[in-house]
């Protein structure tokens, strides 16, 4: 299950992650490898440690033990938890993106839709108003939001539109790696399907790598190349998505897969 540590090709290499909240272990002996352009889904029931893992991989929460290494486009490795805070912030603004389950965590609700998208570009150093606005409109269209909504405030948007706006805001800077926490959670099923196809298409076209946390196995099947199954803070099984779902080896994965309702 554990790959040989490899310092030069992997985008993210995490080894021996351990974190406990009081007496409750949230992560135990977790190793994760992510390759450029690869989508990894982390599945498991509530409380299995999925979101904690996402927060530790993205440097938002420090582990008690273990390390997360990120390889930048120049091939240089950075320890996400020992690098200076400003450098980590820069990483989050440029190479990385984060898509939250609740888009309001990421969006600025009193700034126009176009402003929300343009802001990420400005944070990266873009200064020309016309260019920023044109690119913002282009991205709104890519996530299927009408260009004439560019000056509207997000609070006039539906839940599905807010989620698409968050995706536009995240992807406008062409990140190499996106962390997604239940990106389709809390949305109507009809909206989910469209959003899934959108995420799938954009991620494939831009060659983005992603770590996707979901409790929905169908979402994992559609979006992910590879799956890691978590139970009580441990990764109990990992492998090719269709292999893990169609031929699960671990008792917990077999339970998880056999519990899905068929429609």
């Amino acid at each position: 299950m554990t790959a040989v540590p490899n310092g030069h090709d992997g985008l993210i290499t995490a080894r021996g992650l351990y974190l406990s909240f009081g007496a409750i272990p949230a992560l135990v002996d977790v190793d994760i490898d992510l390759w450029p352009g690869e989508v990894l889904a982390v599945v498991g029931e509530s409380g299995s440690g999925k979101t904690t893992l996402l927060n530790v991989l993205s440097g938002r929460v420090a582990p008690d033990a273990g390390a997360v290494l990120y390889t930048d486009p120049e091939g240089e490795q950075h320890d996400v938890h020992t690098m200076p805070a400003p450098a980590l912030r820069t990483l989050h603004r440029s190479d990385w993106g984060f898509v939250h389950q609740d888009p309001k965590q990421n969006l600025r609700m009193n700034v126009s839709a176009g402003g929300n998208v343009g802001e990420r570009l400005m944070a990266r150093g873009a200064r020309h108003y016309g260019t920023i606005r044109a690119e913002a409109i282009d991205w709104l269209t890519q996530v299927e939001i009408d260009a004439d909504r560019v000056d509207d405030l997000p609070r006039t948007f539906s839940g599905g539109m807010l989620q698409r706006l968050q995706i536009a805001r995240t992807l406008v800077t062409h990140p190499r790696l996106v962390f997604m926490d239940e990106p389709t959670g809390g949305l109507d099923v009809s909206v989910q399907a469209r959003l899934l196809d959108l995420i799938r298409t954009l991620v494939a076209r831009l060659g983005i790598a992603a770590v996707l946390v979901t409790h929905d196995i169908a979402v994992a099947r559609l979006l992910a190349h590879r799956i890691a199954v978590m139970q009580r803070g441990r990764v109990v099984e990992t492998g090719l998505t269709d292999q893990v779902l169609d031929d699960p080896q671990h008792a917990y994965t077999q339970l998880l897969v056999s519990s899905v309702l068929q429609v």
Binding site: G239, L240, D242, Q243, D246, D247, Q249
Partner: peptide, 9 residues
Amino acid sequence: MRSLYGNYR
């Protein structure tokens, strides 16, 4: 057949 495709281990 599924084993040949790598769908089954």
